[in-house]
Design a protein around this nucleic acid. Structure first.
Lengths: 347, 347
DNA sequence: AGGGTTGTCTAGATCGTTCTAGGATGAGGA
DNA sequence: TCCTCATCCTAGAACGATCTAGACAACCCT
């Protein structure tokens, strides 16, 4: 198998293709990017030559010259596995939208500002920031220079488009799922000061009220981590056990699950449990957590479409998405005989 | 707070800086990249002007023109959280080496070949591939075009530099740690057909033999996933329990841990347990798995240094790194009274 | 036949940098 | 005085693409 490139150092340029095909560089350019202005016969000929020579356009040159770089800058946090899922979906979505992706990671050692700057230096045409940590002012400043779409952003910022999950709908779905299963005493372990903790907690109250369970409303202080769940579960087991627990997120739910099981309480035999995020954790075979999925593909698709819309001076739409309840093995019918209660039964 | 840029659309170029400072474009360029050939006084003046105008070099143009792009292409898999840790460390390492990073992700929908091609189009000068899935031939072909460094690569490929962890040393460390604690009957749950399963299993045998425990050698078929651990643990509990279990990786170890605890066997009270990878899972507060850490910062540093060395036509060195044993809560002294054994005692 | 339109193609400028070749200037040596 | 020679600087050509303006046919319509 011979390499198409003859010389090791030399790279095949558009000039080479044009010369070989006997046309001008400009025409070759037209053909390569599928622009109108070339006959079908030459189009085919040039393409054949390009293929034969193993030509690949140099994106640096392309980006430099054209104002429409079709390059979408994406910032994400390495440690967040959900960001990974979104990025994956962004790649897929950009393919259809005819955009290219430039990734820039955020980490404790690499602030978001640096990530954004490197993208701007690369000449991205729009910015897609996943869970931005940048302050509203700085974000607004970016938005003045180019379209900015945020995903999982804590708060709205003028000039940016916000793609997000309908948190309330997610919590509502979880509560209703539990009610359908016959549960009445449904407790909420909240997210403490975490992002969107407020929204989810409010949604819990509303969903309970809507189902006529207002008198069963009970919110425990939780948090975003596993330890918060462990702590909340300890508090929970201090009094009488509820039918079910709706937890702020998966990590915390994992803590609750562990504490309950360690105390000999069966999940879902005695208590049902739901999380939020559909993280890797929730899929572990001994966990199988029922949870609310922020549908990464949907969010990504929508964010990319939003950026594309802005680039064409259109108004993007459909930026809030309903999540999906993933029913696994931590929710089940309410226990039928309260007398044999939680203290005795074993998983 | 006024933006340094006057017009919203116009970007500040080197020309603007040169004009404002009253020097030629070339001289401004010399100053900006710290090249020799400018007096200290003008150097300062130009720098002051650049700062005042908010000048940022356009990397596209820079990359296009200069042969030494100082750009390091990195491929990684989104779903692998360990890759994330490495990438994080790569950013830090490149900073010192004076290199820039271009990321390109691999996912089920985006094959590694595509990721590499997009990096080549961008004009990267060297390639750092984390856990490459590309075949040896294709990899060798890349290596002919530019320096290629692989990280966590399954097998050596001619022309590429391989940075990896000394798997054997890791397993040895785990075994010796257990022996120190008084354990004798140490079982190994292997990785099945997974990458480097063979090496780790061999290292286990050697370490046991070296400690005079050859007759206690026992290897159970495992795998890379949690289910494999669950299955192996079931097999394990069929016979008499060993003192300790050295598992191929963290995920599988988590399965073993879960199965043991569910059967009422205390870890580390009855059985000690070690994993491999120091993954996020192993740090969960109810897990606290003793494990072998592939030191991401060290690996990244070494890989970047290797790439930098190749770019300067030097031979890189020190590509194999010893891992570090992270002692958490799943290993402890051997149980003192075998009579009260595992079947009765509870965690 | 002349004027307009449409389709195909090309020359040359351009993007923002870096690089090469060479022009001033002044100091120091013969 | 004249010739190096280093130091500081500049003009202009790259890099590899895109874009603008316009040339040249061929065609249609009056």
């Amino acid at each position: 198998m011979r390499e198409p490139v003859g010389q090791p150092g030399r790279r095949v340029t558009l000039n080479d293709v044009a010369a070989e095909a006997g046309v001008s560089r400009a025409l070759a350019s037209i053909v390569m990017r599928g622009a109108p202005g070339a006959s079908d016969t030459t189009r085919e000929r040039v393409q054949a030559v390009a293929r034969g020579l193993g030509y690949r356009p140099d994106s640096r040159a392309r980006l430099l010259r054209s104002s429409r770089t079709r390059l979408l800058g994406v910032t994400f946090t390495l440690a967040e596995s959900f960001h990974g899922e979104v990025v994956e979906a962004v790649y897929a979505a950009t393919e259809n939208a005819g955009l290219e992706v430039a990734l820039s990671a955020v980490s404790p050692q690499r602030p978001e500002s640096r990530a954004v700057e490197s993208l701007l230096d690369l000449g991205v045409e729009a910015l897609l920031m996943i869970s931005p940590s940048t302050g509203a002012e700085a974000l607004a400043a970016y938005a003045q220079r180019l379209p900015v779409v945020t995903l999982l952003s804590p708060a709205p910022v003028v000039g940016t488009d916000q793609v997000r999950t309908d948190d309330a709908a997610g919590v509502r779905a979880a509560v209703e799922h539990l009610v359908e299963l016959g549960h009445r005493e449904i407790v909420h372990v909240d997210g403490g000061g975490a992002v969107s903790a407020q929204e989810r907690s409010t949604a819990y109250r509303e969903a309970m009220t809507a189902r006529g369970l207002a008198r069963h409303i009970r919110v425990l202080r939780g948090g975003a981590g596993e330890e918060d769940g462990l702590r909340a579960a300890a508090e929970l087991m201090g009094g009488t056990l509820p039918d079910a627990v709706v937890v702020f997120n998966d990590r915390s739910a994992l803590g609750v699950l562990e504490a309950l099981r360690r105390a000999g309480i069966s999940v879902p035999g005695d208590v049902s449990l739901t999380g939020f995020d559909d993280s890797q954790l929730s899929r572990l075979s001994h966990v199988q957590l029922t949870t609310v999925s922020q549908q990464a593909p949907l969010l990504a698709e929508s964010a990319v479409a939003g950026a594309a819309a802005r680039l064409e001076n259109r108004e993007p739409g459909g930026l809030v998405h309903p999540p999906r309840l993933i029913v696994r093995a931590t929710t089940g019918p309410v226990r039928t005989d309260p007398a044999t209660g939680p203290a005795i039964s074993r998983s």
